[in-house]
Amino acid sequence: MSALDGANSITLPDDLSGAFCEALKADLLARRGQPLELDASNVVRCGGQAVQLLVSAKRSWASDGQPFAIVNPEADFIRIVQLTGLQDELFPESGADT
Rank of each mutant, 00 (worst) to 15 (best):
S2H: 02
D5T: 15
S9P: 04
I10S: 04
L12M: 08
A19C: 05
F20W: 15
C21P: 11
E22T: 07
E22N: 10
K25L: 10
A26G: 09
D27N: 06
L28D: 05
L28Y: 08
A30V: 06
A30I: 06
R31E: 03
Q34W: 04
P35I: 07
L36F: 01
L36V: 03
E37L: 00
L38G: 00
L38I: 11
L38V: 07
A40E: 12
N42F: 09
N42D: 15
N42P: 06
G47T: 09
G47A: 13
Q49H: 12
Q49N: 10
Q52T: 07
K58D: 04
R59M: 05
R59T: 00
D64R: 02
G65Y: 04
Q66W: 05
P67A: 02
P67H: 04
I70Q: 03
N72I: 08
N72T: 12
P73T: 03
D76E: 13
D76Q: 11
D76G: 10
I80P: 10
I80K: 07
Q82P: 03
Q82D: 00
Q82L: 04
L83Y: 13
L83F: 14
L86W: 00
Q87K: 02
D88R: 03
D88H: 08
D88L: 00
E89N: 03
E89P: 02
L90K: 02
F91T: 09
E93Q: 05
E93T: 02
S94G: 06
G95R: 02
G95E: 03
D97R: 14
